[in-house]
Design a binder for these strands. Structure first.
Ligand code: ZN
Ligand code: ZN
Ligand code: ZN
Ligand code: ZN
Lengths: 168, 168
DNA sequence: TTGTAAATGTTATAACATAACACTTATTTC
DNA sequence: GAAATAAGTGTTATGTTATAACATTTACAA
């Protein structure tokens, strides 16, 4: 039986992921008094098309495809908004973006990035948070943001080294 | 008394850091049968000028300054070599590079990046390594590389919010 | 409805990184 | 030692990611 925490690497009803993500986005914006404009909403939907990380220029291409005028600043502004709102994460080691799947407040999470299928699984990680923020570890360093990214092979790609079955 | 592990944020005899780093580089290359050419050596020295992260184009500018012909490919090739040899780390969240200060073999380390003075402290972290690589955490994900970067304020910059005293 | 702030459009450019191929230098083999 | 081979660097061009600056539009409030 598939674990919920490995959803990104399993065939699953992805429409539910999308619906949940968009509902959460709307209510989070409502709660914060932020505006989920059509552009921001569309960018978020595009990001949630799959569990694969998308680059900013992938998004621009997709928007142009569907007739929207989308120059880089437009998309980068949407991405910035979505990040600040906690709806997406930027993946530093890929220069790409992924929907946040941890439905909690601010959290330190670990991103597991399959180098082959590019699917990304986010894992909330209280222990990691604890461990990383211990004074014993950081000394007198005052942490603000963290990037924890593990690159490797997802379960599916370990079995099928050439083409990973879970493309969505 | 300054802890060895927070050297980057303390005034210290940085020449010793440089000497140690260059000695280690030479012996590591000798051991591996790799060639620490003048270009590679100079790039490594430039990176070790300080504990601040340097971008590739900072290095290019520095090399041009000193009369060396240095187009991007040259520097990126040196950086690639130094990374593979384990002498430097790339900081994904900054697009910048820092000398490795953990004198061991391959290691998973945590980089503490001061957002103000840009000084970077590397901390080797066996516990983190253990924690991150636990099956309980990663499931059946097969890890290969990890990026752990914490951005915040170093001890010095917490005290002097405008200009950090440890610029070297 | 008119003023204000927020969001988006538009143009240009900055910052980071690599492809492709020529040339030079070091190392091996004969 | 000379020729062959491999490793490293030079050079030109271009690809990829991201932002600056300013004009215009849209949403909301007074
Ligand atoms: Zn899904
Ligand atoms: Zn998240
Ligand atoms: Zn030092
Ligand atoms: Zn290191």
């Amino acid at each position: 039986m598939p674990t919920a925490s490995l959803l990104a690497y399993q065939p699953h009803d992805h429409d539910r992921c999308v619906v949940r993500a968009m509902q959460r986005a709307q209510s989070l914006c409502d709660a914060k008094g932020a505006r989920l404009t059509p552009m921001r909403k569309r960018v978020l939907e595009l990001i949630w098309q799959s569990h694969q990380a998308l680059g900013a220029y992938d998004l621009i291409a997709a928007l142009l495809q569907e007739g929207s005028k989308a120059a880089p600043p437009t998309v980068y502004r949407a991405l910035e908004f979505l990040q600040e709102t906690g709806l997406i994460h930027r993946i530093a080691s890929l220069n790409a973006y992924i929907g946040c799947s941890v439905h909690k407040g601010p959290h330190m999470s670990c991103l597991m990035i399959c180098k082959q299928c590019r699917n990304v699984q986010e894992k909330a990680h209280p222990e990691l948070e604890q461990l990383l923020l211990q004074p014993a570890v950081l000394g007198k360093f005052l942490p603000e943001q963290s990037v924890v990214e593990i690159t490797g092979l997802c379960p599916a790609c370990q079995k099928a080294p050439i083409d990973c079955p879970t493309k969505d």
